[in-house]
Amino acid sequence: MESDVSRRRRAIAAAGLLLLGALVASGWLEARVQESPQASLKPAAAAPEQDKPAAPRPAKERMAVYVILAWVWLSIAVLLAFLRLRVREADRVHRMGLHRAGDGPPGAPGH
């Protein structure tokens, strides 16, 4: 039972890493597709340099975004810790065979 759980956990972790790797890789490709042609365009375009920034210009806004991002990651980390506790709790109930007694979604019989 115990080794089963840890194997499952390892599988989930590996899968998560794989998925993230794939996503980031695909994203990198996408970025190249989106950016590079434009980059190569710029010198060719004789038109007066139009400034069309991709990133936030005001330093204040950029700062705010970084703060939000940090805040989001912090919340996610804490949330993951809580979710882990909750998952363990739910799994323990499941192992004890008690899951039918009131752990269902709201509105399910026995809730």
Binding site: E35, Q38, A45, Q50, Y66, W73, I76, L80, L83, R86
Partner: peptide, 28 residues
């Protein structure tokens, strides 16, 4: 569902991070 929720939040964080640092431009 709880496990799925965990995956969602990580994905959400990754998405936001990538979006902040690699914002697409727009051509002429």
């Amino acid at each position: 569902l709880l496990r799925e929720a965990g995956v969602w939040f990580v994905l959400l964080g990754v998405l936001l991070t990538v979006a902040v640092f690699l914002a697409p431009g727009v051509g002429p």
